[in-house]
Design a protein around this nucleic acid. Structure first.
Lengths: 382, 382
DNA sequence: GCAAGTTAGTTGCAATGCGAAACTAAGTCA
DNA sequence: TGACTTAGTTTCGCATTGCAACTAACTTGC
């Protein structure tokens, strides 16, 4: 007999829904093959999901199955209805709220920013509430909210420590739940970005990858195994003070030549000030490197050190793929040769080359990560 | 109806057998709870396994269930018959074959060593064949053979590169299969040790741990997720040339201050020769450190560097636990203070302390790892 | 030493979920 | 238009499971 649809979905129904969510429109045939069940079973499972409106049938397509194209009955791809439910992601920085609305598949729909009037937790919660209200005004059905920030977060709600915001032990999740009738999840910003990559981004088909962010800080996230984000101290960037032994700068905690002292935007600019005797921006420094040897030396040294860091991650965490992202990635893009040299100098010559993907990332991407976390928590489940 | 036993075991039968193998004698009640099935189902599954002799019932025990002890019907623990089938593990070093016989649960039964007459692959295969013959002579039913060595091994058979033996592209698995009628698996020695820890050792209940060996070389293995050993280049020790920036020695590949140049037995002894102007053994050097400042400086520097290495593994691979083992662990045991300083200096103060286990390891342990690999391959399966 | 209580293990029953295979549907090609 | 190809459906029967009533094996108290 045909089973009814009960939420949350369980068993095969759940597996079918998730596979469609993560891997785009799929025909029953394809789904049956992917999930290792018979076509008959898949028909039975998909039936109720279609009836309940959770899945929809898209236009028929002829599969050009290796050989002559389009013969036989066309496939009937099953897909999610993306125009109905939406998710909000908010990334909190020291002075701005970056907000996005996404579909269930974490595709960007709208993005807006708001200057933060105050860093006082309840004021921030008020402002987030206002923005969510605004975003749902246009008749959009918002299903969940994800919030991310730089810092350690416990139980998807409690901000243990957020140095840039000056928070410790702030239960932002509770503040938000008091203000709106919406499932809310709060998480570390880098981990949110990892989740977005894991489910909807460049690492969709990899279950073992690392993500490094450079910019104001150095972030690190690792995925190994079935969608599990690892680490006993989630949100504590254990890579920040990784000893690179290059450059000789001193970081905020007194380490000489650590990643923070070499790679953060602040570190780059303070070196530039010393060497060039003028204040420049990050972009100006990179541009200047084409003509000014002192500037070139600074950025090349940093890119080389970044390569060493990437090689160390590859050597010790053994990922299939490494994603490099963050505001500071231009450093890597503009000095690819020094970066690659840093990698190969610290990598066994017999090792397989690193699958390194460098992504430019906007603030909307960070906010999208927060939305992806909400989707993972409340839809993908488990 | 009651299902028969067909090998290899599948589904619940397989799950029950593996759980008993890995987690000792367990009653039906406990097994049902662990596997998440009803007691009735477990009775039905266990029946045929008992009938086929794969499982046996042990003496009844009264469970002292939190409160007054021993009330109600006692449990009937199911266990494996360990006195029937045996496994052989062989570790090949430059001059010796280290061989063990173990039970299905990788418990040591016998150990013997043989000097290698020649490093020629077919001669080594001959000698292994002889030893296995000898070990099975005493009426023991040997079910499988595991062989491990330092080097990269492909498809559990083909030795791509084994520098210490001078081998490259030697299909040792094929040579052995030609000589005996026994399932054979060949693997890297460090990975074998990791497998032994994973299934039968200190990491039995952890699914995310790292193992570091020090001695003649520096070995590294990482487990993350359901029993999966990670890494695109299995058996290639990506940690050997990890840059520690300590000590100033130069390694075989020209790196200054890398792990090899600081931590291997050879590196320690060559420093000792320089500083003390005499040849000492590893043990003598450690003993000398109590009285001789120069010797103390050498071993403390090395222990500090080892701590830095351990901290880096913890920071980048994010394991729950790190096992340190190998012939050279005495360095760590004798200089625990310097080791811990090296760790804490390179670890975020807010991070949870590393669960570090230091194990002394005999050559029999290495061979046991090989046996464990055979058991994993041919019994645990998948 | 026997009844009452407690926990482990077994069995009968009904429901479920699945695969196999025959069947229908929807297209192409000559 | 009919032969062919591939996707999706339906019917049938079977294996597996949980549930709940059952038996088995023990302790404790009288």
């Amino acid at each position: 007999m045909q089973q009814d649809v009960r939420l949350p979905l369980e068993g095969l129904q759940h597996a079918v829904a998730i596979d469609v969510l993560l891997h785009g429109p799929l025909s029953r045939k394809q789904l049956a093959a992917r999930l290792g069940v018979s076509p008959g079973t898949l028909t039975r499972v998909a039936g109720p999901l279609l009836e309940a409106g959770l899945l929809v049938e898209r236009a028929l397509v002829q599969r050009s199955s290796s050989g002559r194209p389009g013969i036989g009955r066309p496939e009937e791809p099953l897909d999610l209805e993306l125009g109905r439910d939406f998710y909000v992601g908010v990334k909190i920085t020291e002075n701005t709220l970056h907000c996005v609305v996404t579909t269930l598949r974490a595709q960007l729909v709208t993005e807006i920013s708001r200057s933060l009037a105050s860093l006082e937790p309840s004021a921030v919660a008020d402002q987030i509430t206002d923005v969510v209200g605004e975003l749902s005004e246009e008749g959009r059905n918002i299903r969940a909210l994800g919030v991310s920030l730089g810092g350690q977060v416990s139980r998807n709600s409690l901000v243990l420590e957020a140095p840039l915001l000056g928070w410790s032990d702030v239960d932002l999740g509770a503040l938000l739940k008091d203000r709106m009738d919406l499932p809310v999840v709060v998480d570390n910003d880098v981990l949110s970005l990892v989740r977005a990559e894991r489910w909807f981004g460049a690492a969709k088909d990899s279950d073992h990858f690392a993500l490094i962010t450079i910019g104001a800080g150095i972030g690190y996230g690792l995925v190994a195994g079935s969608g599990i984000l690892e680490g006993p101290d989630p949100g504590l960037s254990t890579i920040t003070h990784f000893p690179l032994g290059i450059g000789g700068g001193v970081c905020s905690q007194g380490h000489t030549g650590c990643a923070e002292s070499l790679l953060t935007t602040k570190a780059l600019l303070s070196r530039a000030r010393l060497a060039l005797d003028e204040n420049v921006t990050h972009d100006e420094l990179l541009a200047l490197a084409d003509t000014n040897p002192a500037a070139a030396s600074i950025v090349e040294t940093a890119a080389y050190g970044l390569g060493k860091l990437i090689a160390s991650v590859a050597n010790l965490a053994l990922p299939e793929k490494i994603i490099l992202t963050g505001d500071g990635v231009d450093l890597a893009l503009a000095n690819r040769e020094a970066l690659d040299r840093g990698i190969s100098d610290h990598r066994n010559r017999r090792a397989t080359p690193i699958d390194l993907e460098i992504q430019t990332v906007s603030f909307a991407e960070w906010a999208r990560g927060a939305a992806a976390t909400a989707i993972e928590t409340f839809v993908v489940g488990r």
